[in-house]
């Protein structure tokens, strides 16, 4: 209810700014114009949206799997952790976006560099978040493992992994909001499909209402992903 009110308030403010002609329509189209653009370009937006969504989902799945494997390997092997831990910590300060042009040179103009950008944006929070969780098992639980003479593997399955689940949940919630950004940035750098490409194309042709329609769709996509993730995580009490 509060969210709905906030959204309505945002749209009202937007309409107000347009109404008072504070900004020219080629800078800020009215909500109504954007809604009309959404309606008139339904098929076009759906086509490009499907491309972006596929890139986002592929990047999410790959990034989460790679992140989980890396975090687990580092949790189980002190040697790997000694090497990989500082890299993960440093990666938080790395502006991954600057790699977008490089990825395009490496992977071409197809979907691959967009997926790679998304993987990078998803991998680091998942890997470092889950590793933190795996290493933050309470001492009391580890005492039980020692008492039972459990090896690393069984301690991992029965104690470390369950205690890391909330960290995984937090990392996933962040990742799904980053993932569409990764795909769109990949598309800005060089693409012939996708919502990011559509935004640039609409901008070049001064179709500002279509550009905003694509923008609205990206926001809606991100919110929907976040909501679905939240539902799934909550079902598993994470």
């Amino acid at each position: 209810m509060h969210r709905l009110l906030a959204a309505l308030g945002g749209v009202a403010l937007w309409q107000g700014v347009v109404q008072m002609q504070l900004l020219p329509p080629f800078v800020l189209p009215s909500p109504w114009a954007v809604l009309r653009a959404l309606g008139h370009n339904g098929a076009l937006l759906a086509d490009h949206g499907a491309v972006t969504l596929a890139e986002v989902l592929a990047g999410l799945v790959l990034g989460v799997i790679l992140g989980l494997i890396s975090a687990s390997a580092m949790a189980l092997s002190p040697a790997l952790r000694a090497v990989g831990g500082p890299v993960l910590a440093a990666s938080q300060a790395l502006p991954v976006f600057v790699l977008a042009p490089v990825l395009t040179i490496w992977f071409g103009y197809g979907p691959a560099p967009k997926v790679a950008m998304t993987v990078l944006l998803v991998f680091f929070p998942v890997a470092s978040g889950v590793l933190d969780g795996l290493m933050a098992t309470p001492q009391g639980a580890l005492d039980l493992a020692r008492i039972a003479d459990a090896g690393r593997g069984r301690s991992f399955i029965w104690l470390r992994w369950p205690h890391a689940l909330p960290h995984l949940g937090a990392a996933l919630r962040i990742s799904v909001t980053y993932a569409p950004t990764g795909a769109v940035i990949g598309e800005w750098v060089g693409a012939s499909k996708g919502l990011g490409y559509l935004m640039l194309m609409a901008n070049a042709r001064s179709k500002i209402d279509l550009m905003f329609a694509a923008l609205v769709l990206i926001v809606a996509l991100t919110l929907a992903l976040r909501m679905i993730t939240d539902r799934i995580l909550r079902r598993f009490a994470i």
């Binding site: 009391g140 639980a141 005492d143 039980l144 493992a145 039972a148 003479d149 459990a150 069984r154 369950p162």
Partner: peptide, 25 residues
């Protein structure tokens, strides 16, 4: 081993908690 805290694992059922050390071992 029994500590001041019960050390029950929140994601396991009560029965699984009772059997935890067997599984760990």
């Amino acid at each position: 081993w029994m500590a001041q805290g019960d050390l029950l694992q929140p994601r396991l059922s009560v029965l699984q908690n009772v059997m935890l050390l067997d599984n760990l071992a």
